[in-house]
Write a protein that binds this DNA or RNA. Structure first.
Lengths: 158, 158
DNA sequence: TATGACCCTGAAGTGCACTCCAAGCAAGCG
DNA sequence: CGCTTGCTTGGAGTGCACTTCAGGGTCATA
């Protein structure tokens, strides 16, 4: 018995939060729009604990509740979590994601600041990729060294 | 007054630990071979605390001491730290670096395991780069969205 | 209606990689 | 000689991102 009917006019939360990060490997459980916390946990790979914690620290845009107070996540929440998952993969600290969530809550006049935040993140990601590629050079150098040394010592026994 | 003369025959520690990760941006302080902890901190960017901590957890191959018990790092230590720095950039956990350091201490018969460890690290780095590139797609998508939206709203005022 | 799986909360705990602290020794300088 | 600066130690503290706990309430099904 779910008391709260789906309010058709929720705050906008921008279509942009909807379409990015379509996730083909975890197909959304069919046509429903109200998921329990464990369903969302299974879908996102986050633990139920983590989902509650995200909500507490302001990283979720106000999750719906059933008449008895249990969380009921919507498809919009799933979309948001998919974006959060991507931002987490960038290495963005949680505090910055909370900041971004705040900006989204504040409406369209924060577009500029949101864009700036994502552009900074983009630069960080590019830098990190470059760093990692730098480590690959050293890794390859040393892997080759060990491979050569082992080949040489085998030849010595032949 | 440095008591311990530089023992010419130290344990091998393999030439490979010497040559990888030559660091052109922090030129080594000229021809010396005995550095204080703060010199090494300045050179590596690590704090003196961290250098002591590295030693305590077994991530350093036994650092030399002056007659009064102060640490005296050698060029070999600097080389090792430069490698450790690279491994740290890969995201390798400290525990794994300690494992690698143990293998180095144990001598040449651990070449195979060392190679395997670095190859696993290499795979991890490649995976991480792919992840990051995946996030770039989402970032670019959303940055474009905000840029377009802002351009559109500017046009609306014109 | 009873049972077992699921959900709720606030608070405390965990693991990682440092980072800082207190108390003390040692070297160089006026 | 005193002062400052730098080094030593063991142990405690920090920040982050969860994770677990204690002590309950709720839901579906037999």
């Amino acid at each position: 018995m779910e008391s709260t009917p789906v309010t058709p006019e929720q705050e906008p939360l921008e279509t942009v939060e909807r379409c990015a990060g379509a996730d083909p490997e975890h197909p959304r459980p069919d046509g429903r729009d109200r998921y329990t916390i464990s369903e969302v946990a299974a879908h996102t790979g986050l633990s139920a604990h983590t989902l509650r914690w995200y909500e507490r620290i302001g990283l979720m845009p106000h999750v719906d509740r059933s008449h008895t107070g249990q969380r009921r996540f919507t498809n919009r929440d799933l979309d948001w979590l998919s974006l959060v998952g991507k931002l987490r993969l960038t290495g963005m600290p949680v505090a910055d994601m909370v900041r971004y969530a705040e900006l989204v809550r504040q409406g369209e006049h924060t577009f500029e600041e949101r864009q700036a935040l994502l552009e900074q993140t983009r630069r960080d990601v590019l830098g990190r990729i470059a760093e990692l590629q730098g480590t690959l050079a050293v890794l390859d150098y040393k892997i080759d060294f060990y491979a050569d040394a082992r080949r040489a010592s085998e030849r010595a026994w032949a």
